[in-house]
């Protein structure tokens, strides 16, 4: 478990969840959610997260998910209400929909901050909660300002934006009285995206070459087969390319989180993550959804177990603080609109 290293003690994050156990919790969640027409989903979310957090441990202590289901239910009702209004406007009065989107924009920084705050406040480890404290102005710059600049820079600023967002989300986070630091530089993100771009072009070029080669087949049967094979190969190669980029960015981001002389290290491998994601997809589709819990546990185990903490001897010295509760509307709206708030 713990080994002495040059930089002090290393502690691995461990995941003890089991698919058979989680399956039973999941099926109860699905059943109760369906017969209550979605109301129970708030309680289901809490149980699911309690299981996943509780199965994750570091240095012999587990993580704790403390969110109040009633707060989540209220947040979901607000989110669903807003979405219903928005989509109804789209059907009945399209100009009103644009107006709603415009009115919504000033709330975006608030939503981002509240969402992250809700998640972190309700995450505890060793009876000390995490927290998030950011100014709306900074959130507005990161979530509204940068996305406007990126297309103007012909995507050249995109890697910098990814770095900036991760920095914002990390450096404004806290554990008890301690504030996190983000120790990555934008250059590493540029390098990752450069490699990704080169790989992407290579895949596209070889895919097109295969496609053209397929078209030159004289026999019509083998022509169809060759073209289909080329398309399929390109599709899976592209999927792998995107996995590669995701893994690079995740490793950079999760290896840069520092707290009180400790730092996380993330060592995901593209090959393994790609295999897990792809086999999960087929397992879920072929089992008509029954293997969803298995897929969830498998992915969580791999992600958690590829994370470790250097300098873990400093853990005991961390100091806690008192904090009050917070509403979940921001998190639920953010989740529904697919705003990228988590790391």
């Amino acid at each position: 478990m713990n080994q002495a290293g040059e930089s002090g003690t290393q502690a691995r994050f461990e995941f003890s969840g089991r698919a058979a156990e989680y399956f039973r919790i999941w099926i109860v969640n699905v059943f109760l959610t369906i017969i209550t027409l979605g109301i129970y989903s708030a309680w289901a979310k809490v149980r699911r997260n309690r299981y996943l957090y509780g199965s994750t441990s570091l240095g012999g202590a587990a993580f704790d998910y403390l969110a109040d289901p009633v707060a989540i239910l209220k947040g979901r009702l607000i989110a669903v209400g807003f979405l219903a209004l928005y989509s109804a406007a789209g059907h009945f009065a399209p100009p009103l929909q644009s107006l709603l989107a415009l009115l919504f924009l000033p709330f975006l920084p608030w939503i981002v901050i509240r969402a992250r705050k809700f998640t972190l406040r309700n995450t505890a480890y060793r009876n000390i909660r995490f927290d998030f404290n950011a100014r709306k102005r900074e959130a507005a710059a990161v979530y509204i300002g940068w996305p406007i600049l990126i297309p103007l820079s012909m995507m050249l600023l995109y890697p910098f934006y990814v770095w900036r967002r991760a920095q914002f989300l990390t450096a404004r986070s806290a554990y008890g009285m301690q504030t996190f630091e983000f120790r990555a530089n934008p250059g590493a993100y540029y390098l990752a995206y450069l490699k990704f771009g080169a790989l992407f072009l290579l895949v596209l070029a070889s895919g097109s070459a295969l496609f053209v080669l397929g078209l030159t087949q004289t026999d019509s049967g083998s022509r169809v087969a060759a073209v289909a094979l080329a398309l399929l190969a390109t599709f899976f190669a592209l999927l792998a390319t995107f996995s590669y980029k995701d893994v690079c960015v995740a490793n950079l981001t999760w290896s840069a989180i520092a707290l009180n002389g400790m730092q996380t290290q993330c060592t995901l491998q593209t090959r393994r993550l790609y295999w897990i994601a792809l086999s999960n997809l087929f397992a879920v589709l072929l089992s008509a959804g029954l293997l969803i819990p298995w897929a969830t546990i498998r992915m969580a185990r791999y992600r958690v177990s590829s994370l470790r903490l250097d300098g873990a001897q400093n853990l005991d010295a961390l100091v806690g603080t008192q904090s009050e509760s917070i509403g979940a509307a921001g998190e639920e709206i953010g989740e529904f609109l697919g705003i990228d708030i988590g790391l």
Partner: peptide, 26 residues
Amino acid sequence: NSAVALLLAFAVGDVVSVTSLAAALP
């Protein structure tokens, strides 16, 4: 269609993390 999509998203919230294709098909 919106009701089914919403209920599905609520009932098996995990799907999103696996892949959105698995959610779109049903």
